[in-house]
Design a protein around this nucleic acid. Structure first.
Lengths: 197, 197
DNA sequence: CCCTTTATTGAATATATCTTCATTGAAATA
DNA sequence: TATTTCAATGAAGATATATTCAATAAAGGG
């Protein structure tokens, strides 16, 4: 392949990477196109040679995020706690192994609360909130089985998923942080020993 | 006191409240002065009658946040786990009782990563990051005592504080959410039963 | 009741930021 | 090598947003 074509891809990737980092640190509105160009070591004009607008660039990042972070959270016939454990382990592995995955995770969360965003992108982003809602019946099942502790199922779901979200955010902003163990977060849900009735 | 004076205070409070809600939902840069004025049911001009600039308004919010959220996290001579438990319970109580406290919590977190902010405010905000650093020796002490589980102390501190941060963020944006139990988060740190050596 | 002070408005202005464009130079192609 | 195509620049232009201001209405005080 030609030198040009390679460089084109590299440049594009560099812009996306720089923009992602800035967007999650400062937010969309406070990240100036000039900041992104500077971070990517290029002129403002060149940035617009690669992306039509700041908004398109942002949307491209979200699109990439949606592709990569396909949270299956598949309803296998495993026990509820096993499903949450697998999900947590997958996520922690992703977040701690791949710095840009952690950043994507944060971008997607922040994007949810943004007005000026095309409808189809907004729909894609609805997932995160659904995750909590979808977890509630699973938690209730786990409570009946005695593997998940008692308490309001929605509150438990919020505690579980938001803890992961909070940790992902910190790791995204401080990539050198030692990675927490997924099992620590599972202990939020886990019913310890005796089944009290 | 005169009607005017009362109304003045009310207006100011209303602006601050509206701005806080918008800032944490959309971020500083995407929150337009017009949005704030609209949310507070007043003209743009009047908003500037109460605050010199958008930035001053933001800084005022941070100043209020710093006053209210004086995280003592005092080093009493209680056991490490008891100190973390007390801190978590205090925070959860504050977050779940007082919606604007939860929002403040989020604002302060977001503000940290903002450039254009006076130096003295930046210093005030350094606290959150210090919280994790200050927790490390305490966690190590708890590990020696066997009340806190084994593992990298910094990673445990990150897991604990960031979980609280993540939950606070969700509650701030969804105030009707049932409040998680502080003890659920404590179980991130807690060493269950047998001391393995 | 008159005069002073303060609240209130929205259009006009200033400012900041995004986006375009004419131009230059480097790489591909023949 | 000549020619075409694309990368690259930064200043000019367009746009969006913050801020000011002159004018009006309401309240306070004598």
């Amino acid at each position: 392949m030609s030198i040009r074509h390679e460089q084109k891809e590299q440049r594009r990737a560099l812009i996306l990477q720089s923009a992602l980092d800035l967007f999650i640190r400062k937010g969309y509105g406070e990240t100036k196109v000039a900041d992104i160009a500077k971070a990517a070591n290029m002129s403002i004009g060149l940035l617009f040679h690669y992306f039509d607008s700041k908004e398109k660039l942002y949307e491209e990042l979200i699109r990439i995020g949606c592709e990569r972070l396909q949270m299956d959270f598949s309803f296998t016939n495993e026990s509820p706690l096993a499903i949450f454990t697998a999900a947590a382990e997958d996520l922690f592995d992703m977040i701690c192994t791949n710095p840009s995955a952690a950043k994507m995770f944060v971008l997607m969360e922040n994007a949810q609360h943004l007005d000026s965003l095309s409808e189809d992108l907004k729909e894609m982003l609805m997932e995160a909130d659904k995750l909590i809602k979808k977890s509630i019946p699973l938690i209730e099942k786990g409570q009946l089985l005695g593997e998940i502790k008692q308490g309001n199922a929605e509150a438990l779901a919020v505690a579980f998923w938001c803890s992961i979200q909070g940790i992902a955010q910190y790791i995204a902003l401080h990539p050198e942080t030692p990675c927490p163990n997924a099992m620590w977060i599972i202990s939020i849900l886990e019913n310890r020993e005796g089944i009290e009735k």
